[in-house]
Design a protein around this nucleic acid. Structure first.
Lengths: 333, 333
DNA sequence: ATGAAAGCGCTAACAC
DNA sequence: GTGTTAGCGCTTTCAT
């Protein structure tokens, strides 16, 4: 039982033409039950798999989807990627992963490479749209709304209800009695940070409370950056009884800064995070965090992508997925 | 400036044959400086990228590397994948990601799919070897030694010095005065857990101390599993003054269980983890953890993979990368 | 130094 | 229901 490496040999062994083998494989056109059985058997026996480069060349479809992500190391994104990959692999598709490290230049490079590779579709976590290369290529944007007013993208967009997330988190702090709430955010690259901030302000304004200054903006969404910024604030004598972090990563950094300055959660300061990543449960006393329905977002993303790849126009181009609040000790007095 | 989509058009626009264009692109064969310049200019102007399916079909090289990983959600693995992807992308290669969820069946399916896709090479984090499909395909095993005695794999293997890691962690606990040390491990799928355990036993035996029973083995490397197991132990009345967890994930779960039973780190119990993942710094008081040199492992993995893809036999087939201990408050009295 | 042409493995028109 | 064949875009041998 030596293995046949191409369709021609399968055809020869099965005593049919390559066209028939192709038809059987792709469930295309007509063939008798009998031939099908014989061809399948030969394929099985020889452990044959079609050469996907050839298929790709011939059909311009590769059954590969590109997934472009800022940083797979971020627990939220790795979670998204996991779900996407599982969905894709179940449908026989492969998943090409690209980290952009928030660099537009790198992102552009990756997108060009993906199109050169003839990917069947792209899932893009980015605030940038309008890539000329993406015209005509099924694209689903996940997690990051566009920053551009000029956005006339043809793709579909799926995001969490970040405004409500920010609102829920701020509300939890307010209801626990906080009156001087600090927000740690990084509005730079990530436009849903803005949405979370909006929800935050909304909750405060409803409660008739003013945002606690100084109004800083982190230079990066990272543990280190958050730790440094909050440490500086504390040392400057900032007074606050609650912190809303727009990311669990930021919350984590804040937690360290507090610890190093002898402040305790929840005794001295209450805190909320965002993403409900595994370590939110572990961090200090357990951080109350906004939970995004990543499984649902991923399922929806893939399902829409497949619709588009099948040539259908999706009925709806914008989806907002509800969030929930996972309450832990960091907001319990 | 409409864009040319194939080599033929570039050739036409440059007034040369497709062969010449191909030569210029691949720096192959001979051509005059002058034609080169002209061709390059046309390529640039038209934003042309060769169709990689065609290249792949013609050359059986795809410039794609498959990366097979148990679970990208695990911070250690996502870190590995990040580094691999960056290295690959810098060399113009793409990175096909596959999660196996520790399932041999899924792993096999993924490997077949990768070979059908003509990947140029594979990075595999798995304890299983001996895939017939992998014969002749450049393969680098990372992070997981083989469990099989029959391992005659042709690939290259890179792993951390897990034995020494276990040793360092146990030693830290011993030096801080622990005498009744519990180890939380999961020997099942992951053979470097065994190595960490070996190092642990070594340190204990050097100190003339016996391992603390009951000798449990978790059913999974997860927060939930660790939490459940340790809770049960505590409720059964187990007595210990130190915990060595073979993973930060496990350490995290243990931390929750301790907290829920009113035990404090480091006042009542000392603890060490493994992987030095970001949340080890955040978790409770900060967990002392064994740091793996992921950057170095990844760089080496890719560099060896490229050697093999270039047809060279790597001089050395086995690499053990040193680890270090990152000391935090969880081992400071 | 460059061009012509064969062919990688596959699919899809078209013919019967 | 099945076979013949053209050709997807590229690389590479062989001419010149």
């Amino acid at each position: 039982m030596e293995k046949a490496k191409n369709i021609k040999e399968i055809a020869r062994l099965a005593g049919v033409s390559t066209a028939t083998v192709s038809r059987v494989i792709n469930q295309n056109g007509r063939f008798s039950k009998e031939t099908e059985k014989r061809v399948r058997q030969i394929i099985q026996q020889n452990d044959y798999m079609p050469n996907m480069s050839a298929q790709g060349l011939r059909t311009s479809r590769t059954d590969v989807v590109g997934v472009v992500v800022p940083d797979i190391t971020n627990p939220h994104f790795s979670n998204v990627v996991l779900h996407l990959e599982v969905e894709l692999s179940q449908r026989g598709y492969a998943c090409l992963i690209c980290n952009t490290n928030e660099s537009e230049e790198l992102e552009k490079k990756h997108i060009r490479s993906l199109t050169a590779r003839n990917v069947s579709g792209i899932i893009l976590i980015s605030s940038t749209r309008n890539y000329a290369e993406l015209e005509g290529l099924p694209t689903v944007y996940v997690d990051r709304p566009s920053r551009s007013k000029m956005d006339r993208t043809e793709g579909v967009m799926i995001e969490s209800d970040n405004v409500n997330g920010g609102y829920l988190a701020a509300k939890a702090l307010l209801q626990a009695g906080c009156r001087r709430i600090l927000i740690l955010k990084c509005l730079g690259n990530d436009s849903n940070q803005v949405a979370r901030y909006t929800g935050f302000k909304q909750a405060l304004s409803e409660a008739g409370i003013e945002e606690q200054g100084p109004l800083i903006d982190l230079d990066a969404v990272s543990i280190a950056s958050a730790k440094k910024a909050l440490s500086a604030l504390i040392e400057e004598g900032a007074v606050f009884d609650g912190i809303m972090a727009t990311t669990d990563t930021i919350a984590g950094g804040a937690m360290i800064a507090l610890r190093e300055h002898g402040l305790h959660v929840p005794q001295d300061v209450l805190m909320t995070g965002f993403d409900d990543s595994p370590f939110a449960a572990l961090c200090g006393p357990g951080i109350t965090s906004v939970h995004q329905n990543v499984a649902e977002m991923s399922r929806l993303a893939i399902s829409l992508l497949f619709e588009m790849m099948a040539g259908k126009e999706p009925a709806c181009r914008y989806y907002r997925i509800p969030v929930t609040l996972t309450v832990r000790d960091s907001t319990r007095r």
